[in-house]
């Protein structure tokens, strides 16, 4: 199934996200999440900003539009970032598609 901007995504309940020293850390909670159970993950600044918008209610397109306005950036660039991040997280089962 190809990820599109029409999808609605939310953080998986099998991960825990915490902000430590301004860094957004994702900790796998259940078995099979991430690549290895003993690792942690962090998101870069763009990824962190997108993650904080993933609420399981808004479509990825809406999130991109909100962020383009918020950061005064080109919508097409933000859309690429949103799909890129969510694609990475989805592969690692850190987000669920509603």
């Amino acid at each position: 199934m190809e990820l599109t901007l029409d999808f609605i995504c939310a953080p998986s309940e099998d991960v825990v996200a915490r902000v430590i020293e301004d860094e957004l850390i994702i900790v796998p909670l259940a078995a099979g999440i991430g690549d290895m159970d003993s690792e942690l993950y962090s998101l870069n600044e763009t990824g962190k900003a997108i993650w904080l918008h993933l609420d399981g209610k808004k479509s990825l397109r809406s999130i991109a539009e909100e962020m383009a306005e918020e950061f005064d950036s080109a919508l097409s660039l933000i859309e690429t970032d949103v799909l890129g991040l969510v694609g990475e997280l989805e592969k690692r089962k850190m987000v669920v598609i509603k």
């Binding site: 430590i20 020293e21 301004d22 860094e23 850390i25 994702i26 991430g34 690549d35 003993s38 690792e39 942690l40 993950y41 962090s42 998101l43 870069n44 763009t46 990824g47 997108i50 970032d81 890129g84 991040l85 990475e88 997280l89 690692r92």
Partner: peptide, 21 residues
């Protein structure tokens, strides 16, 4: 470009170049 960085277990104590309290 990758948005996600993996930390190895021995790197847990230094995040973003800083050591948590």
């Amino acid at each position: 470009m990758s948005y996600v960085k993996r930390y190895k277990p021995h790197e847990f104590n230094i995040l973003n170049g800083k050591r948590p309290l």
